[in-house]
Amino acid sequence: MELIVAHDRAGLEKARSSGRVALVPTMGALHEGHRSLMRVARTLADQVVVSIFVNPLQFGPAEDFSRYPRTFDSDLDICAAEGVDVVFAPSADDMYRPDRQVSLSAGRMGAMVEGAVRPGHFDGVLTVVMKLFNLVGPQVAVFGQKDAQQLALIRRMVADLDLPVEVVGAPTVREPDGLALSSRNRYLTPDDRQRALALSRALHAGAARLSPAAVRAAAEGELAASGLVADYVVLVDPATFAEIPDDFRGEAVLAVAAKVGTTRLIDNVLIAF
């Protein structure tokens, strides 16, 4: 079946299926990590819809909205190769009314960890995801574990607002040397690309330890040894993103963020205690 590209709400409405729909929200600049989400979605539904929309609400004033990579033609080739049924690629004017007043609040969890570094970021994320849920009408939506706090907040939004959408988290996809795939990796110079490996090394060093305190210390030490200055190195509950105590038992997220050259990268790994 030929890929349908809908650039507005009317085109999306015409393309919508009466069967089970899976949504994969993206900002484009697609890579193998996005392909993995599409493949998961394909197993879960009759119709797969991929949204491609660089959401202005989730970028702060000093962030990279204007230079965020936009590779629409190659994105469509990837979607077609993965058997996606519909690409929804609206304009900002079509997504947001010029007199828009109402947005979602990510609450206390949205102001923690990544949200503390990027105030308002998760408000923008939840607002656009809610709009996509309303417009596409999926029964299931697939997100990457790489954005672990985003995944947790979307699950919380679905629970708190009683949304009829199953949220599926898919594993992080990495390069052979451990670097997590990201659309922003294309900003890295060759030297930066090598320095960026410190993030995955820090996660690996932390995951090899047996106690929360040792996990944090090992990850922080690896980043410090690399010369990178971390925005944070945290060990948190994957559902609430609250820092875990040293006597914690269960699964936790070790999350790191640092700027490499001019590019800010995030990464995380799940650890069981």
Score class of each variant (00 low, 15 high):
Val84Pro: 03
Ala111Leu: 15
Val129Leu: 14
Arg155Ala: 15
Gln150Trp: 14
Val129Met: 08
Thr127Gly: 01
Pro98Ala: 13
Asp75His: 05
Ala80Trp: 07
Gln139Asn: 11
Arg118Met: 08
Arg156Cys: 04
Asp93Ala: 15
Ala111Cys: 13
Ala80Pro: 15
Arg100Thr: 15
Ala106Asn: 05
Gln145Val: 13
His121Ile: 08
Met112Thr: 11
Gln145Cys: 08
Gly107Glu: 03
Leu126Thr: 00
Gly124Phe: 09
Met109His: 06
Val128Gln: 01
Met109Glu: 09
Lys131Ser: 07
Ala89Trp: 09
Gly144Asn: 06
Ala106Gly: 12
Pro90Lys: 02
Met157Gly: 04
Pro119Gln: 01
Leu104Met: 07
Gly124Thr: 02
Phe122Val: 11
Met157Trp: 01
Ala81Thr: 15
Gly137Ser: 07
Gln145Gly: 14
Gln149Trp: 06
Val140Thr: 07
Ala148Asn: 09
Glu114Gln: 09
Arg156Glu: 11
Pro98Val: 13
Ala152Gln: 05
Phe143Arg: 00
Val113Leu: 09
Pro98Arg: 11
Ser105Asp: 08
Ala81Gly: 11
Pro90Trp: 02
Ala81Phe: 08
Met109Gln: 13
Arg100Lys: 15
Arg97Asp: 11
Lys146Ala: 00
Gly83Asp: 09
Gly120Met: 10
Gln150Leu: 15
Ala106Thr: 04
Leu132Lys: 03
Arg155His: 10
Ser105Thr: 15
Asp147Tyr: 06
Met112Gly: 14
Val125His: 00
Gln145Leu: 14
Val136Cys: 02
Val113Ala: 10
Gly115Ile: 05
Phe133Tyr: 10
Val113Gly: 08
Gln139Gly: 09
Met157Gln: 07
